[in-house]
Design a protein around this nucleic acid. Structure first.
Lengths: 288, 288
DNA sequence: CTGAGAGTTACTCGACTTGAGTAGAACTCC
DNA sequence: GGAGTTCTACTCAAGTCGAGTAACTCTCAG
């Protein structure tokens, strides 16, 4: 490289005045700067069977407080700053806050069996979706919301929350976007688009099913998220030919299908983090 | 649909008490909540020719203030809340803040020719990369940074900033990640990974070149970002066969290459927003 | 217990895409 | 004019895709 030497200078400057840096920090007053509120919102998706058809559901909360009382919103809440008035509180990272919100709204936080709760939450896949900070999106004040996307296998039905809020798993096709609180309709749409493309090039569909599953169950996840039926034989071939997607357990289901049919082989999630080749959505035609 | 009726109830509740909602809002005091600082950081990438090889560069700032004085950092700054002390200030959206940071650091903001500046900045592609909020990432206080990724065609060399800071386009392979300020090394790595995969399935490579360009220039963008040479004939074929990627202008370059060679056809960016089929990176083999 | 129907898995086929190589076209420099 | 360079067109074998067919193995009804 040309070596204008940024790294060398950085080394020197980074090591010679640690004491001065420490002095600066102890004299620093965070209150000089004006505040902005930060929240974490979660788009939690799961597959639930409605009238024997597997359907994509999202966890929503009916707001019990102003603003937007009575409207559906994504579960979420304010993030606490690093130094509280007592100075003793350990602060939570953003993903931790997202997990906490999810646990609270699904009622898992209230459970007495801590080990069982941890086991269930450990299976939830969580990734950051994006941050929404347009002025005016919250009528109270300037709020920056960090949205997270969660894929969960069959979490329990939510129990009533503390703030007179009601949480529920709602089928995504039934959500009235025009009457959601804040800009949550847009966040939900972004989440659904992200979820759809995540299934294409990662093995994350396994996050929606039990630890042991059949290829058909996996296909039902894809069909529910993409909203279209897939060709079963081709899906089967592609899943098995993608290295590291699934691992054969050797076992099969105890029974065939409800109305007859062969017993299906059971698989568990493989070790791959990316799918090669990817499973592309059919019919993604070009506009114009 | 099952019709538990979320949308119907939401309609009712959303329309019948607007007056009460307005009353609530006017009585609302934002200062009740504790503050968290929010910043916007920009990872601006461009291609510059170094010793006749096109090389990926990132815009970095050598910090003129504590903490991390003298270290390289991403350009960025604090976001201002919606209601200032004067109550009159119009607040900026997050992407606007990112563009402003970029304009300030490249010296474009100082230019007198506003129309020329706008034209150059309009060609910059900007997307949100992610938000970084781990406690302790800024030693001063709890700071949430919203990072943006920018692709720019040949912006001017930065001029000296106001805070005794020096900005420069630095070749990404020469960046010493161990001595960057805050967690900016991680943000940079995330940005490079995102940029690489964006080139695969979107036509955004065109954001790095002039409005009219040759296929070879486009290939050099891919080679610089992916860090590996590509098979020229195959690249040519794939670009032309992806609908909406490029449009033929009918013209050619005025001269052949510096050391001889045919004149190249000139293209401009097409209208597609997604590439079908995608241009996948070669040699993305499976780990383990 | 037997046949019909259903669910799972294996196989086939033509169309298309891919990576690698070859070759021709068009240009600059000497 | 010739050598070397750059751009573009073409070929070919291997692999992948969508669609269809069919075999295998269960459940259920009669």
């Amino acid at each position: 490289m040309a070596g204008t030497g940024p790294e060398r200078q950085a080394v020197v400057l980074g090591t010679d005045d640690d004491a001065a840096e420490a002095a600066f920090l102890s004299a620093y007053d965070p209150r000089r700067y004006e505040p902005i509120a930060v929240t974490v919102d979660v788009v939690a998706l799961t597959i639930r069977v409605v009238e024997s058809v597997p359907t994509l559901h999202v966890l929503l909360v009916r707001r019990g407080q102003r603003p937007f009382v009575g409207r559906w919103a994504l579960p979420g809440g304010f993030v606490r700053p690093a130094t509280g008035p007592d100075g003793a509180r350990r602060d939570e990272d953003l993903p931790e806050a997202a997990v906490r919100e999810l646990a609270e709204e699904t009622g898992l936080a209230a459970s007495t069996d801590r080990r069982a709760v941890d086991r269930r939450l450990a299976r939830v896949y969580l990734e950051q979706l994006g941050t929404y900070g347009t002025p005016g999106r919250d009528p109270r004040m300037r709020v920056i919301s960090v949205a997270y996307l969660a894929f969960a296998p069959d979490l329990p039905d939510p129990t009533a929350g503390g703030d007179a809020e009601t949480a529920a798993w709602v089928p995504v096709v039934g959500v009235d976007r025009d009457h959601m609180a804040f800009d949550h309709a847009r966040i939900l749409d972004d989440a659904l688009e992200r979820a759809g493309s995540k299934l294409e090039y990662t093995p994350l569909a396994t996050a929606f099913v039990a630890t042991e599953f059949t290829i058909t169950e996996l296909r039902e996840v894809y069909e529910a998220v993409w909203g279209q039926p897939l060709h079963a034989p081709n899906f089967h071939r592609k899943v098995l030919s993608a290295p590291g997607f699934v691992e054969d357990t050797g076992a099969t289901t105890a029974r065939g299908g409800a109305r007859g049919g062969r017993r299906a082989r059971l698989y568990r999630a493989g070790t791959a983090r990316l799918l090669h080749p990817a499973l592309l959505r059919p019919g993604q035609e070009e506009p114009r």
